[in-house]
Design a binder for these strands. Structure first.
Lengths: 154, 154
DNA sequence: TTTTTAAGTTTACAGTTGTAGACTAATAAC
DNA sequence: GTTATTAGTCTACAACTGTAAACTTAAAAA
């Protein structure tokens, strides 16, 4: 019964969601204060986001008496995984490896994270194909490095 | 003189961009046909996307006589890297590793890709911290696994 | 129990995105 | 040279986003 339909979370919604995930159960008051001091959001902005996230089923309102509490309705890791996978879905398969490399290089990973990734990669290597085909339209190879980049940049 | 300000590419724009990257130099006619057969886009939709991408400086119009040609103005790999890094920027640093793992597990990587990643990870391991702090608001630890997940899912 | 205040709900509004029709200006065909 | 085709530009429009004011209702305070 885990949350099936992963909701799409927008940029600023991530901000609010992260606070809710961190606090696990919050009042709108708390959220308003946090977003106000940390993100300069007007109280109304937080209220609107909260309302939208509830409608999207990413947050649930609990309690029946007035200062309600709000709790996450989707898990953080799952939402992150889904968002990341989704993004890669829209990009060329052939270049996934490099993009993942860029991400890894751009941020800090713990020893455990790295060990875990190494473990996964070692396993994956066993059945890895020599190459991954480009899946861009029109069934072409977006990577053939002939001419073509002269116009890029300014 | 590489493209500095990486433009934000939307979901459907990725589709068109990929075709442009693949073909390197295309006419609107070609694009219209590709998107029409492969994505069921109305000709106008392709035209609009093309126009918007030009305005965003992701594609350049070249030539001075009527059937113009269109060429990418940003590099595919760079755009992918930027988009991926950007997404991770809005999510919890502490969970980056797991999300990257999810991505890796979700798709095919070539032997070279894997070797490259392994190389990067090995290098990164040398200076990897024991743990990566959660950078969610309110400076909390979004990962402390006490109670809190009872409400999730339905 | 009337007033205040805080919490929650509606409305607003510009900009973006997905989709696409309408219109205009070059070319190509006759 | 007209006319028919295209290629390119403008307009449209609803849904979604970022941002927030206005309004309403339920508690809390007086």
């Amino acid at each position: 019964m885990i949350d099936e339909q992963q909701v799409a979370i927008t940029d600023s919604e991530w901000d609010l969601m992260r606070a809710v995930w961190t606090l696990k159960r919050v009042t709108s008051r708390q959220l308003i204060e946090i977003m106000e001091t940390e993100r300069q959001w007007a109280p109304s902005t937080t209220k609107t986001m909260l309302r939208r996230l509830i409608k999207k089923n990413a947050i649930s309102q609990v309690g029946d008496t007035r200062p309600f509490d709000y709790v996450p309705a989707v898990r953080e890791q799952q939402s992150m995984d889904a968002a990341a996978v989704r993004l890669f879905d829209s990009m060329c398969a052939m270049r996934t490896g490099s993009a993942v490399a860029a991400v890894i290089q751009s941020r800090e990973l713990s020893q455990d994270d790295i060990a875990n990734l190494q473990q996964i990669l070692a396993e994956k290597m066993k059945t890895a194909p020599k190459t991954v085909a480009c899946n861009c339209l029109p069934d072409g190879n977006c990577m053939n490095m002939n001419e073509g980049d002269e116009h890029i940049g300014q």
